[in-house]
């Protein structure tokens, strides 16, 4: 897919990814006026296993996310992007550095940071409605009736009202992830962490889910940290993209996406989109590395029977 886009883009004059239309620039300056929700300072994480040297998953990462910003994290496999989300969620302990949510240090998991995982994590023994009510009920501040009406509102927002009484195994993958988003948002968290949430979905459903996510994000006061390995997905969704290097996971660049909002699928071929996409491609799959993609040549067919 990646080569397809670059070859199509080749005849176009690709503008610099840094070039921002005036309204885009204005939007970014407004965005940066907003209060900082998440502040990450010199965050490091290494994993130790006995008898082996420790693996450094993240090495001194620093960035900020402003209120209602959508930050995507992208990088080659092994760059520790999932680890970053799990650290912010409190599911892992950092080896160094600090993370502040609304200025307060993050310690352990909490309902102020919702998370959507790549694997489906709806509770199989609860109906969709009860799943969405889970956080509201363990939080304990709401009566059952309040929690139910709140949960129904969120189900309506993700378009699953009709499936309130269905069990998770009766839903398709996309519907499961929509229910998981509703479940995470029902807690009214400050941040939504999404760890490759659409990675297991087919291409068509993934597109649809991206569009759903943008629609939901527009209507809710939520700051999103979205982990992905899909370059198009990152450019389509993000305000800014955090590009990580692998081994050790270091911050390569914090890129502002110059594609104007509101986003739509029509923008995939717009110059700003192609430029951003092209830049990511250069960083993540540099041309110098393409020689490494070649397999040793063995011919198992007759000469003259070439397919390309």
């Amino acid at each position: 897919m990646s080569t397809e886009v670059t070859s199509m883009a080749a005849p176009l004059v690709v503008p610099s990814y840094l070039e921002q239309a005036p309204e885009v620039a204005a939007r970014f300056s407004r965005l940066k006026q907003r209060p900082v929700i998440l502040e990450v300072r010199d965050l490091s994480k290494s994993f130790t296993s006995p008898g082996r040297p420790p693996t450094v998953a993240l090495d001194r990462i620093s960035f900020q996310a402003h209120r209602r910003e959508l930050v995507c994290v992208i990088g080659p496999s092994g760059c520790g992007k999932s680890t970053l989300a799990r650290l912010v969620a409190g599911l892992e302990e950092p080896s160094g550095g600090e993370m502040l949510l609304d200025g307060k240090p993050i310690r352990g998991p909490g309902s102020d940071r919702g998370m959507v995982f790549q694997s489906y994590t709806l509770f199989p023994w609860l109906t969709v409605l009860k799943n969405v009510m889970f956080g509201l009920e363990v939080g304990g501040q709401m009566s059952h009736a309040e929690a139910e009406s709140e949960a129904r509102t969120w189900l309506e927002m993700v378009g699953l009202t009709k499936f309130a009484t269905a069990y998770p195994h009766q839903l398709s993958g996309g519907m499961k992830q929509r229910a998981a988003i509703a479940r995470a948002l029902a807690n009214r968290p400050r941040m939504l962490l999404m760890d490759e949430p659409f990675g297991a979905l087919d291409a068509q459903t993934r597109c649809q889910m991206q569009s759903y996510l943008l629609q939901i994000w527009r209507q809710v006061d939520i700051t999103i940290l979205f982990i992905t390995h899909d370059l198009d997905e990152a450019v389509y969704l993000a305000d800014r993209i955090l590009i990580l290097d692998a081994h050790p996971g270091r911050l390569r660049e914090l890129m502002e996406v110059a594609v104007p909002r509101p986003r739509s699928a029509d923008q995939f071929l717009s110059p700003a989109f192609v430029a951003a996409r092209h830049h990511l491609e250069e960083l993540i799959h540099p041309r110098a590395n393409q020689a490494a993609d070649k397999l040793p040549a063995f011919r198992m067919t007759v000469v003259g029977d070439e397919v390309e």
């Binding site: 969620a89 409190g90 599911l91 998991p109 909490g110 309902s111 940071r113 919702g114 998370m115 995982f117 694997s119 994590t121 509770f123 889970f134 956080g135 363990v138 939080g139 998981a180 479940r183 995470a184 807690n187 962490l193």
Partner: peptide, 10 residues
């Protein structure tokens, strides 16, 4: 993952 999901839900 179910336990982790529950933890992030508080």
């Amino acid at each position: 993952a179910l336990l982790e999901a529950a933890e992030t839900l508080g």
